[in-house]
Amino acid sequence: MWPLRRQRKIRSLPIELTGDDLQHVGSKAVIDSRPPSIRQYALYSHRLSNGMRLTRDASGRERLGGWEVTVHTQQTVPARYRDRFDAADPPCRHGGGEYISFRGLIIEGMAGLSSRLVPSRSWRPPSAECRRICALIAQQPLLWGGCRTIDSIYGDSRRFVLHGDEEGDEFAAYIETFKGRNGSAYISLWTTEAPKQGGSGPAAFPRGMAIARNKMDGPSLALLPTI
Rank of each mutant, 00 (worst) to 15 (best):
V69S: 01
I10D: 05
A204V: 04
G104E: 08
G109N: 10
T76P: 02
M209F: 00
V71N: 04
D83T: 14
D20N: 08
P14K: 12
R158M: 07
A135K: 11
S114F: 03
R131L: 12
E98F: 00
P119Y: 00
G146H: 09
M1Q: 10
I227M: 15
G168E: 14
E167M: 10
G198Y: 05
Y99M: 04
V118A: 03
C134R: 14
I10V: 15
G168K: 10
Q197T: 12
G168V: 10
C130F: 00
R103M: 09
G180F: 13
T191L: 03
G218V: 13
P125M: 05
R8H: 13
A138L: 08
I175Q: 08
E16V: 14
L142A: 14
C147Y: 05
A58S: 13
S152D: 14
L221V: 03
S45A: 09
E16Q: 14
W190F: 15
R63E: 06
R84T: 13
G218T: 13
A58K: 12
D89Q: 10
L22I: 03
F178R: 12
G218A: 15
R181I: 04
P78G: 06
W2L: 09
K9Y: 05
E166V: 09
V118Y: 01
A111I: 02
V118P: 00
S45W: 00
R181L: 10
D169T: 08
D83V: 11
R159M: 15
I137S: 06
L4H: 06
V118K: 02
C130Y: 00
R47T: 01
D217T: 05
V77K: 06
I153N: 15
E68I: 07
E16I: 12
P195C: 06
A185P: 03
D21C: 06
R5I: 07
G198T: 04
S27W: 01
L143I: 07
E98P: 01
H163N: 12
A128S: 11
G145Q: 09
S101W: 02
D83L: 09
Y174H: 15
R213S: 08
P91D: 07
P78V: 04
D20T: 11
Q40F: 00
I153T: 14
P126G: 07
E62S: 10
E108F: 01
V30G: 00
R11K: 15
M52L: 15
L117I: 06
L136T: 05
S152H: 15
P206S: 06
C147G: 03
T18P: 01
R6S: 13
L113S: 11
R5C: 06
R124W: 02
R148C: 07
H163E: 14
L113W: 02
I137E: 06
S122L: 05
R11C: 04
S101P: 03
R124Q: 11
P141T: 09
C134H: 07
A79T: 13
